[in-house]
């Protein structure tokens, strides 16, 4: 077996691990957000509460056992547990994507 192939294999694996390291994000809870000034492209896990729909936008709260944060999403949401990806400006969580339980991208 050529040494070059093994070398390429290990270099590729090193690059893959580097890519993985930069492609993961931690799963936050609403309580974690309340102590942060801002955060971008994060995933948050919680329960949807008090949904209000106006002009195609859904306004709601995402809560955990201790705290809740305001959230807004272009589209419809329904109550229940969700994982949402978006940006936090210190007051409102702007949901870009909802990974609900019925979604294949829903991860742990």
């Amino acid at each position: 077996m050529a040494k070059k192939a093994f070398l390429a294999f290990f270099v590729f694996l090193a690059l893959a691990i580097f890519t993985l390291y930069h492609s993961t994000s931690s799963m936050l809870k609403p309580s974690d957000l309340t102590i942060m000034d801002s955060a971008y492209n994060i995933a948050i896990k919680g329960k949807i509460e008090m949904i209000k729909i106006e002009n195609g936008l859904s306004y709601f709260y995402i809560s955990d056992d201790l705290n809740r944060v305001k959230a807004v999403y272009k589209g419809e949401v329904s109550s229940g547990e969700i994982i949402a990806r978006g940006d936090w400006d210190g007051k409102i969580f702007y949901v870009k994507e909802i990974l609900s339980k019925c979604h294949t991208e829903y991860g742990g």
Binding site: F12, L20, S23
Partner: peptide
């Protein structure tokens, strides 16, 4: 390499969110 790439992403997903871009790039 294919197996390791998929396994690493799947394993990492047990603890953190893994973005789809990882799989597309690797």
């Amino acid at each position: 390499a294919m197996i390791i790439v998929v396994f690493l992403g799947t394993f990492a997903n047990l603890f953190r969110n893994v973005d789809r871009s990882y799989y597309l790039l690797t």
